[in-house]
């Protein structure tokens, strides 16, 4: 059964999610990748004003393709989350409640997620044409000079994802393999 989630991601909603759940995410999210996440973390560290209030927000580690005429959004999908691991504890401390990306996270990030009662979702990488059909609006929100690395604001409607790491630190990347790996 698909769990429907409406953003912002409140602690009450986060509490109901478990690693392995299939979800449909609706509402506004911010897409940011390497450079934008690094800049956000730097601003947090120096106590400067952020371009967006991160409280209970979900950050999508992604850099979409340019929007072709007549479409709500270009192709969009998750990039490798691991590259954002160095910035993640600070982002979570600043109020980020959820992240969407792909691939496993470091043990430090898993413990940060547990500490801040946050959720890490994964969307299917390399399915960007399909995923774009769940985006109803898409615009560059901040730092346009970064090109593909700018912060984008996206409106999602039932965007398909899985809960990969839950508030208790349950992690699909360690649990999911059980039963499928063989010693060879």
């Amino acid at each position: 059964m698909v769990k429907e989630i409406r953003l912002p991601l409140t602690p009450e909603t986060a509490r109901l999610l478990r690693a392995g759940d299939e979800v449909g995410i609706s509402g506004t999210i911010y897409a940011a990748r390497d450079v934008a996440c690094r800049r956000l973390a730097e601003l947090i560290r120096s106590g400067e004003r952020l371009p967006v209030d991160l409280h209970d927000q979900v950050i999508f580690f992604a850099g979409p393709t340019p929007v072709p005429p007549g479409r709500a959004c270009g192709a969009v999908g998750p990039t490798t989350s691991k590259r954002m691991d160095p910035y993640t504890p600070e982002l979570l401390e600043a109020g980020v409640r959820g992240m969407i990306g792909k691939g496993p996270r470091s043990p430090e990030v898993v413990s940060s997620i547990r500490r801040f009662r946050a959720v890490y979702f994964v969307a299917t990488g390399g399915a960007a044409a399909l995923l774009s059909t769940f985006v109803t609006r898409c615009e560059v929100f901040a730092w346009p000079e970064l090109g593909p690395e700018a912060i984008w604001r996206l409106a999602l409607e039932a965007f398909p994802a899985f809960v990969a790491i839950d508030i208790e630190g349950g992690d699909i990347f360690t649990e999911g393999r059980k039963g499928y790996s063989s010693n060879c």
Partner: peptide, 28 residues
Amino acid sequence: SPMGRRVLEQLIENAKIALESALPICQD
């Protein structure tokens, strides 16, 4: 794996949508 099957189904659907709407298969 049920999740694995779901992912494969999405990838097959993605290939169809990409071709029909001339969108890249992957944003990268």
